[in-house]
Every structure is written in C-alpha cells, then in structure tokens.
Design a binder for these strands. Structure first.
Lengths: 320, 320
DNA sequence: ATCCTTATAGTCATAAAGAATATATAGGCC
DNA sequence: GGCCTATATATTCTTTATGACTATAAGGAT
C-alpha cells in the first residue's frame, strides 16, 4: 500500500478559533546531600517553564532551552510526565495546554552559586517524608481534619468512600504506607480544601491550610506527579544513577533512594539487591570520607542500560 | 502566604506566532474472542482522532466526543499515553501537537454492526504474537534484514550497538523475549527502514517493507506505544477487567491476558495468582459453553479497585 | 588499647513463583 | 453403559526472592 497525504481526520472545524498555546513545564530534580531537591523560580514561586515555540525543534529541546535560560542549568535525563489543559482558564478565549516533564540532574559547583533556587521537595510535601517514621506533627494535624471532611459529606456512601480513600492514601487504620501514592494524597488534600491552592481566591475566612509550601497555579500538583512517578520508577529502572556523581559508595546510593522514596531501606538487603543486579561495578578505589571503615567506590555500568527486562513479571507467563 | 496572580513565566515571546493546533488521538482496545482489537477508521487507515476545541471541557471529554462521533462507540476507561510534536511538519507555519490516549472497552452487539472497523492489532505487528511460539515466518524474515542493517553501519561501535539493540529487543542470541518491548521493536524496524512508514515518500525502489499493515502518519507508532503500555500495566493494575464482560470464567480471563501479552500463561499458576489476589469472586453460576466440565462464572470485585498497593516493591523498603 | 563509626559478609525463615501432576465433571460416540 | 475427550479444579514439589537479623572488618578519635 502506498499512503500519500490522505486526510487523517473526518472533520475539521477549521478557522483559527481552536488554536491553543502550549506550555512546557519542568520538574528538575537533584540531590543535595540526602535532600531531594527541585529547581524553582523563587521570584515566581514556580517551576521553570515557558511556551513551546515555532523555533523549537521538539518539545524536549524547547524545554531544555527554557530551563537553561531561566536557571543556567543544563538537563540530562528527561521524561514526559503528563499533559493537561489548564482548568483555570476554561471559558477564556485561548486555552493553554501544559506539557510537564521530569528531569534528573546533579547539582554541580557552578550551579551552586544560584543554590537558593533548589528547594527540598519535602518543603512542599512535609507529610511525604517517612524516613524517621511517620511525621507525627503533620499527620496528627491532618488526620482529624481529613476525618472531619469525610464526615461532612451528605450521604452515607460518600462518607464511607471518603474515609476509605483517606485511609488507603495515608495509611490510616492499620493500612500500610505506600510512598507511591503521593499524587493521590495531594489530590485528597485539595479535595478536602486543606491545601492553599484549593482555597485560593475564596473567602479569606477559609480554614487555615495545612503545613507545606504552595506554588503558583497547579505547579505543586505537577511536582506531586513527578514524585510519584520517580518513586515508582526507581523500582524497575536504574534512573537513580542520573542523580549520582560518577563515583559513589553503596551507602550514598542507598541514602539517595531513601531520600526519594521517603522511607528507610534495610542495608544488607539493599546491598544484596544492587550487587546481584550487576548495575554497578567496583572501581577499586575507596573513600575515607564516610566516617568509619573506608568504603568501596562504585560506578554505574552504563553498558547495561537497556538490557534489564524492565521489571519482575507479576504474571505467570511461561518461558519460551 | 497569599499567592495572587503573579506572572508565572519569565519571558513571553508574545504574538500569535507560537500558537499550535492540538490533536487528540485514541487507541481504543477491545477483545473479540481472544483477538485483541483496535478501533480504526478504515477509510483513512487511521486511528480515531480530532482537534482539541474550545468547546471541549477537557482533553478527555474532547477525545470521547471525537471517538463517539467517528465510531459510535462510547469509551469507558481512558488513560493518557504520550504527547508529541508532529515531526513531519517541522518548518511548517503551524505546528501540531498530538496527545494520544489509550482506551479500553468491550465490543457490544450494537457496535458489532460496524464490526469491520475493529482490526486485530497483530495485523499491524505480526511479530508480536508469541502465543504459538515465536512466529517463525516473520522473525526469520526480519532477523537477516536486521542483521544486514546492523552490519551496514560505518563504524564498528555502531555495528555492535545495533546488534546488541536488536538482540535485546527481539530476543535474538539466546536472550529472552520481553513482550513489553513492543515500542522498541517498532522503532528499531523504523530505524532500519523495514517498515513502510520509514520509506514513505522515498524512492520507490526502496526495499520491500516487512509484513504488517501500516497506518497513516505515525499512528502505528502510537499503537505500539499503547500495546507496550497495556502489556506493562496489566501486570500491576487490574485493568484487564475493563475488557471483560460482567461475568466470565477464569479461562476466558486467562485467554484475554494471553492475547494482550502475546504469550501463553501457565494455567494453574494463573488461577492461583488471581484467586490469592482476591480480585474476583464466584457468582455461584456456571456455564457449560466452554466445552468440557462446566466452569465457574466470576465477577470482578469493583470495591477493591484502589486498595491494591499498586505493585510488588522491588526495593527492600523496611516496614513501618 | 578501647570505643566509636561505618563497611562488608554472611545466616535463616518465610513467601512467592515456576513447573508439573492428579482428580473432577461435563458432552459425544460406539 | 462404557469410553474417550475436553475442560475445570486441586495439589505437590522445587527453586528463587524477600525480609529480618547477626557477625566480622577496618578505619578514626580519645
């Protein structure tokens, strides 16, 4: 068959009425000694972003351009997060489509000059850090207010549903904490009007929002999406290494994973996992900077990148 | 803090020069007795699609509108796949952004009237069906041609890299087949100019493309993305049930999963997995339509939807 | 030397996954 | 009815992965 330029779609409601603007938004993540950080534009309290333009070769290159221009920071690994039409602008004459990306880099010394533009992501989501156990201060504030919100529903079914969702998301009622539910948690807090974004523009007598810095527009929601994605992805793809320096110890690697996932990892088991996966190799060098016995320095085996079978199958597929 | 309408971005290269059109493209999947099918617009040899318009409440509702209008088929489960700027139109005055979605439904009897618009996705990717073992006919055609392409590179490093990538993607050289690599496989074939899309518009003396129907623009690539996503997702989220009728036997469920993943499943183990996950419950009814001993009819437990901890952790995270 | 720190190397019990086998109950056919 | 075949359902066994824990090694500080 020979496909020339056949019309792709059935109908076109032509004219320029349906043009949109496309924005590129970046969640740039890097580690700063065991603190997972996100690159921000402090003046605007926003993530780096900018419009997609004709001059851009591709969406990704457009994004790289904006981030480098706004922050002076070049990007390495990039992956698309999600695309959404800005809800706030419904009814406006022109709509904006936002295409968000997750980028992973390292904070180099040059960039350290503008260091203040890196913010810990737990400043925005204090309830997400469970490395020292569940953060009692935040959660004991949240729990009753979420409960109150759940009980304020008119119908019984709705009340039960809200309770179940909060319990699942936050690990209440003997349920286990799942760090990957970061987005669901933020959305629940939004729904319950417990974050500043949800009461924006409303009466100033609205209840005090919970702890955690907010961001412009829905940038904090995008950050939550990025956190959830990253927490999920480190489990089946070796993306952590994008955040590591060329040489590192296994404990440094562990601390990075712990910082991202927001929970502690069993040390011997982590070492076993890393070593049996053959993702890293010893350099022979050691470092004494870690305090106790000098640690082996490892490097990531780049050659293995695409080889891994992605994930452990959860289906009893038969082997060839 | 009180965030009013601060300007989000640093710079705006204003004017209308940077407006774009946004297209919505749908990969609608349904099962037709153990054949995984995709909804197509046969006249255009395309996936259902249409522009995102001002009138649309959201991206998703716009997509639903187009698909129902073009195919008469209502959509149930929807998830976003990927957003990309159409490469073919670089340099044009107006750019198009395509936002693709994966949708899962069932072929109802009403829709069966327009049944011919459902096509087996293995018509487009014959090398993806390994249910009867590796499809020798296709693969024994592909293997030497991929090898030839790999060896045609100028530099040795490039030749080795191409060989490694083809071996990983297609499971050559004693590597195991991974059904989730559907997209990588298509992209390799595209790179090697072994699919029709890659030689489009080129000299007609180009080598004959391999088996497998092509599609307009990059729709087939989008379909490959959808297949890969779905094959991955059925392993950690109960999305299969979106494709099942209300009542089904465990073997029917197994055949569906097999059809999607393109490989066979060990029957006792599959039953064990399903039952221990408590995703389904017996109805008490049985059906004799299956041929041998009557089978129990099951139904999906909708109440369990959000409860599952998403996936098995692949990190030795410590329990609370 | 003693004690602190961290690094590294194991052990052990349990749970899950892969593979294969055995039994049960229907219909069709002689 | 007896037998065959097809599918459904139950069970066993082995291997591997996971979680939790213990032990030893090698530096620095006092």
């Amino acid at each position: 068959m020979d496909h020339q330029e056949k019309p792709t779609r059935q109908r076109r409601s032509g004219g320029k009425g349906n043009n949109v603007k496309a924005d590129l938004i970046a969640v740039v993540v890097a580690m700063n000694n065991s603190v997972p950080c996100v690159l921000t534009i402090p003046q605007a309290n926003a993530l780096p972003s900018g419009p997609f333009e004709l001059a851009h070769r591709s969406l990704q290159s457009g994004l790289r351009g904006w981030v480098e221009q706004q922050t002076g920071h070049p990007l390495g690994y990039i992956e698309q997060l999600y695309t959404f039409a800005d809800r706030d602008r419904i009814g406006a004459e022109e709509r904006v489509i936002s295409i968000s990306y997750l980028a992973l880099t390292q904070i180099d010394d040059a960039g350290a000059a503008a260091k203040r533009s890196w913010a810990s992501w737990y400043d925005y989501f204090p309830w997400e850090d469970h490395r020292s156990g569940a953060p009692a201060a935040v959660l004991e504030d949240l729990r009753p207010r979420l409960r109150e919100w759940a009980d304020s529903a008119d119908e019984k079914a709705m009340r039960l549903d809200r309770r179940r969702r909060t319990a699942v998301a936050f690990g209440f009622d003997d349920r286990s904490w799942n760090e990957e539910f970061a987005l669901q948690r933020y959305e629940l807090l939004y729904e319950a009007a417990l974050v500043e974004e949800a009461v924006r523009g409303g009466p100033s007598a609205a209840p005090t929002p919970v702890a955690g810095k907010s961001m412009i527009a829905d940038h904090r929601r995008i950050l939550a999406t990025a956190i959830a994605r990253l927490r999920s992805k480190i489990k089946y793809r070796p993306v952590v290494f994008e955040l590591m320096p060329p040489l590192f110890t296994l404990l440094q690697l562990q601390r990075t994973v712990e910082a991202l996932s927001g929970r502690l990892i069993n040390k011997p088991n982590f070492r076993r996992l890393i070593e049996q996966q053959e993702l890293v190799e010893k350099t022979g060098e050691t470092t004494a900077e870690t305090g106790g016995r000098p640690a082996q320095l490892y490097r990531f085996r780049h050659d293995i990148l695409d080889e891994r079978p992605v994930a452990g199958t959860k289906l009893p597929l038969m082997r060839a």
